[in-house]
């Protein structure tokens, strides 16, 4: 039913450098436009993706972002999975608190991007890497 734009399957972008974070933003923007998210929702999703891609790079030591178009019958959305095999997060509750940071940033990456998307799921354990899944639905 996705006549016109071929959204294909999941698209994966490796995150290993600064420039890759930019590429993740551009990939997410393209898919968000194709799914017809509103301008504000596009902006929120791309911003969240930028925060999380940077986290993957800085705290996870690099990893991947996988962008997929999802459908739940009534509406379509964009799902992004950020995965790294870094040290993981020890205290998740603390990491999700506004203003908490171990990396010298503003501490808004995790907590802030959670507010920008509709679904936010995080799986992590010390020594086992981190896997964050976010979804934004069209209205």
């Amino acid at each position: 039913m996705t006549a016109g734009v071929d959204l294909g399957g999941p698209q994966t972008q490796a995150i290993g450098s600064d420039e890759d974070v930019v590429r993740v933003r551009q990939l997410v923007r393209t898919v968000a436009v194709a799914v017809k998210l509103s301008l504000v929702d596009q902006t929120k999703l791309v911003t969240a993706a930028s925060e999380l891609a940077r986290n993957t790079l800085i705290y996870g030591g690099g990893g991947t972002a996988e962008v997929t178009v999802v459908e739940d019958g009534r509406r379509r959305g964009v799902r992004i999975v950020f995965a790294d095999s870094g040290p993981g997060i020890v205290d998740l509750g603390l990491a999700l608190t506004d203003g908490y940071t171990t990396g010298g940033g503003l501490g808004l990456g995790l907590s802030g991007s959670r507010r920008l998307v509709d679904d936010f799921d995080i799986q992590t354990a010390p020594g086992e890497g981190t896997r964050i899944t976010i979804t934004k639905w069209s209205r």
Binding site: K44, D98, L108, S111, G112, L116
Partner: peptide, 8 residues
């Protein structure tokens, strides 16, 4: 709008 939501 996004910055306000982000908390910045």
């Amino acid at each position: 709008i996004t910055l306000v939501e982000l908390g910045l």
